[in-house]
Computed example of a mutant assay.
Amino acid sequence: MATERQDFARRLRRQSTKPEDILWSLLRAHRLDGLKFRRQVPLLGYTVDFLCLQRKLVIELDGAQHDVERDYDAARTLEIERHGFTVIRFRNETMLNDRDAVVAAIREAAGTATENPHL
């Protein structure tokens, strides 16, 4: 039986935003340097947008609502990082307007910056 947090993650996957859909199309099925990413994953009491357990990397896409949630986001990031994860954040606008920069930053954080520069 699914937990409340798993149900919430499923709901978020069904209601994804355009920037999330774009990033997922770049990450899914090991498309980025063979790394396995999952989306809307329960982690440490939170639901993170994208997770690569292999590299302990969390990717968050932030829309306008995050402007008023800065303190919460900062505390959440610190808690996740305290458990050995790296958290990187991108504004939705960046995902929509500069995919190459987002992919380069993900590769840098994952330590695969030079493995496959032609995604």
Rank of each mutant, 00 (worst) to 15 (best):
M1E: 14
M1I: 11
T3Y: 09
E4Q: 15
E4A: 15
R5W: 13
R5T: 14
D7S: 13
F8E: 08
F8Q: 06
F8W: 12
A9P: 02
R10K: 14
R10D: 12
R11L: 13
R11D: 12
R11I: 11
L12I: 01
R13A: 07
R14H: 10
R14V: 07
R14D: 09
S16G: 13
T17M: 07
K18L: 15
K18Q: 15
P19A: 04
P19K: 04
P19Y: 02
P19Q: 03
D21C: 13
D21S: 12
I22D: 03
I22V: 11
L23A: 03
L23W: 01
L23T: 00
W24H: 06
W24L: 07
A29D: 14
A29G: 08
A29C: 12
A29W: 10
A29N: 14
R31Q: 07
R31T: 08
L32N: 00
L32Q: 00
D33N: 11
D33S: 13
G34S: 09
K36R: 15
K36H: 14
K36T: 13
R38W: 02
R39L: 01
R39S: 02
Q40W: 00
V41C: 04
P42F: 03
P42Y: 03
G45F: 02
Y46R: 01
T47N: 13
V48D: 03
V48I: 04
D49M: 02
D49T: 03
F50K: 02
Q54D: 15
Q54Y: 10
R55D: 02
L57M: 08
V58C: 03
E60W: 00
D62L: 08
D62Y: 10
D62S: 09
G63V: 06
A64Q: 13
A64T: 12
H66T: 06
V68N: 13
E69M: 10
E69N: 10
Y72D: 07
A75H: 10
A75I: 08
A75T: 07
R76P: 00
R76L: 01
L78A: 14
L78R: 15
L78P: 09
E81Q: 11
H83K: 04
F85K: 00
T86N: 02
V87Q: 06
I88C: 08
I88L: 09
I88Y: 09
R89F: 05
R89I: 06
F90P: 00
F90C: 04
R91H: 14
R91Q: 14
R91I: 15
T94P: 14
M95H: 06
L96C: 04
L96A: 03
N97H: 11
N97K: 11
D98I: 03
D100K: 12
A101F: 13
V102Y: 05
V103N: 06
A105W: 05
A105H: 06
I106D: 06
A109L: 05
A109R: 05
A110F: 01
G111M: 05
G111K: 04
T112A: 05
E115V: 08
N116M: 11
N116Q: 13
P117M: 07
H118D: 13
H118P: 07
